[in-house]
Simulated scan of single mutants.
Amino acid sequence: MNLRVIGLATVVVVTALLPLAASAGPAGGPTAGSGRDVPLRLTGPPAAPEESRKGDTAAVEHCGPALTSRDGIEAQTCVLTENGDTWGRTYYRNTSGEELSSVLSLMGPGGRTVESHCTVEDGDERGSCETPHERTAGKPARYWAIAEFAGSADGTGPLLLRSGSNSAAPTVN
């Protein structure tokens, strides 16, 4: 199938679904449309608002709003770049009472998509899920990530929360 058609279809679907993610409401983090790239920081030690320190280099995070579902899931999804690599990460907490599944997708220029499937254990523990790192193609701002949390560990349950790294989908070539 033509990659441009797939890319365009992805943009249309993402654009149509982002209002659903925003309707879940903020979880004490930045609100949708605030224009701030501040990660929820559900894991690890405190760091500078837009950076995760790693030796002498810093991974820059561009994050969407922190969201909470009525089902007890909190999530914030980010795109990270460092040393010419780009990857997606979602920070989460699951207090739903059951083990869930999550699919994290990183989308970039030219119809490039990388996906990770994660098991989200129940409990008050905070966690994260990442896509594999890939060489950055073009500008990092042309990447975005979306995490979807389903109501069962095998991914067959209903969609409980969708969290995105951007408030609007970028143009894809």
Rank of each mutant, 00 (worst) to 15 (best):
A47M: 06
P170N: 05
T81D: 06
T43C: 10
G110M: 14
A169P: 08
A75V: 02
R36C: 13
A32M: 13
V12L: 06
N83P: 12
G157S: 03
E99F: 05
P30F: 06
S52F: 13
T156F: 06
I146G: 05
V114H: 05
R4W: 11
C63P: 08
G7P: 07
W144A: 04
P132L: 02
T86K: 10
G164P: 08
D56S: 14
A47V: 03
I146T: 12
L40N: 15
E134C: 01
G35L: 11
D71Y: 10
H117R: 15
G123I: 04
E61Q: 09
D124G: 15
N83F: 08
G110P: 07
T171A: 13
S128A: 10
R142P: 11
R36W: 14
T113V: 04
I73P: 02
G55T: 07
T15W: 10
G72N: 13
V13A: 08
G72V: 09
G29E: 03
G72F: 09
T77N: 04
L106G: 01
D154I: 00
A137F: 03
A9N: 09
A66S: 02
G84K: 01
A21M: 08
G28F: 13
T156M: 09
V103H: 00
G157Y: 03
A145M: 00
A9Y: 09
D37M: 14
P140T: 00
V172F: 05
L20I: 12
R142E: 07
V13G: 15
L3C: 12
P65T: 13
G84R: 01
T57F: 06
T10N: 01
R89F: 00
V38N: 10
T68V: 11
V12W: 07
E51D: 08
R41G: 11
L18S: 02
A47K: 02
A24H: 14
G151F: 01
L8M: 15
